[in-house]
Design a protein around this nucleic acid. Structure first.
Length: 283
DNA sequence: ATAGGCACCTGGTGGC
DNA sequence: TGCCACCAGGTGCCTA
């Protein structure tokens, strides 16, 4: 479930557990995720103090006092969970290991961070903190949707030359960072825009409507994650994995939620991915 | 430069 | 119960 809001929820969940704390040990249970883990990752993490936990798009960036930054991506199925054993006395205070627990990080505080990812589309790498933004995985990413760089003028210019459907353009991480299939569908529904419309043909007025809606959809999802976070952690420590009710995503054949609209939500495929929308409400 | 399709991998669901 | 097709929150890479 990791789009920007989920990744931000995870960041907020692990940040207080990591920042200012020292890594005691790291257990890596296989050689790779999507790519091999970086050389000597365990040794490079061990004994390091975490100075800051940041997010860029769907990447979590864990800065270390060594001048290196641990980059984490959750792919499609990545999960991070947190558990605690403050005195470091009882291993059973941590949940039993589960299938696909690929990386386990134990902090000096007794906290344990587990990275679990069945499909292994996720990734980890170690970068020089000073030049992290120039890393190939990060350098071409567009503006953060919740930051000043994502505004109607800039986005209008960015999609001006885009011949692809607007849905596809919104998923292009070079144009705007962090959006994924769910929140693009949701934002386009709320904006009343047909996902099949060509990006380059979008009027200035519609861009001005869409941009704040994208922000709202993401902000609300982060809020929902944040508010669910505490309760959920009490349960089993899973972060970024919360219930959410969507207007269109995953609702093919169900009634459109617009009052007075009698249409059913449709599913089409655009560049290989499902798009959910209402034909009546989205033009 | 841009657009489209494939690939990577595991697991869940629904039909026969 | 088994087998099969299809679906899934992402994105790098290859081809035109």
């Amino acid at each position: 479930m990791p789009e920007l809001p989920e990744v931000e929820t995870v960041r907020r969940g692990i940040s207080p557990v990591l920042e200012g704390q020292t890594i005691d040990s790291v257990q890596v249970n296989r050689p790779d995720l999507r790519w091999p883990f970086p050389e000597r990752m365990v040794e490079r993490l061990k004994g390091r103090r975490v100075t800051q936990v940041r997010r860029r798009s769907k990447y979590i960036l864990v800065d270390l006092d060594s001048g290196e930054t641990l980059l984490i991506h959750l792919g499609m199925s990545g999960r991070i969970s947190v558990s605690n054993d403050p005195l470091g006395l009882f291993a059973h205070n941590h949940p039993a290991a589960e299938k696909h627990d690929h990386v386990v990080i134990d902090m000096h505080s007794g906290a344990r961070i587990i990275y679990n990812d069945p499909r292994r589309f996720g990734a980890m790498d170690l970068l020089d903190t000073a030049t992290a933004a120039e890393h190939p995985l990060l350098r071409d990413i567009g503006p953060e949707p919740l930051g000043n760089g994502f505004n109607p003028e800039a986005f209008y210019t960015a999609i001006r030359t885009r011949n692809s459907p607007l849905k596809t353009a919104l998923l292009d991480q070079k144009l705007v960072a962090g959006l994924g299939n769910i929140y693009v569908c949701e934002a386009l529904f709320r904006a009343g825009i047909d996902p099949q419309r060509k990006a380059k043909n979008l009027s200035k007025a519609r861009v001005e409507k869409l941009v704040p809606i994208v922000r709202d959809v993401l902000s609300e999802a982060i809020e929902a994650g944040g508010s669910t976070l505490k309760d959920y952690r009490k349960a089993d420590g899973e972060l970024g994995y919360f219930q959410h009710s969507f207007d269109v995503y995953g609702r093919e054949g169900e009634a459109c939620k617009t009052s007075g609209c009698d249409q059913l939500i449709r599913r089409i495929v655009q560049s290989g991915r499902s798009t959910f929308f209402c034909r009546q409400c989205q033009r």
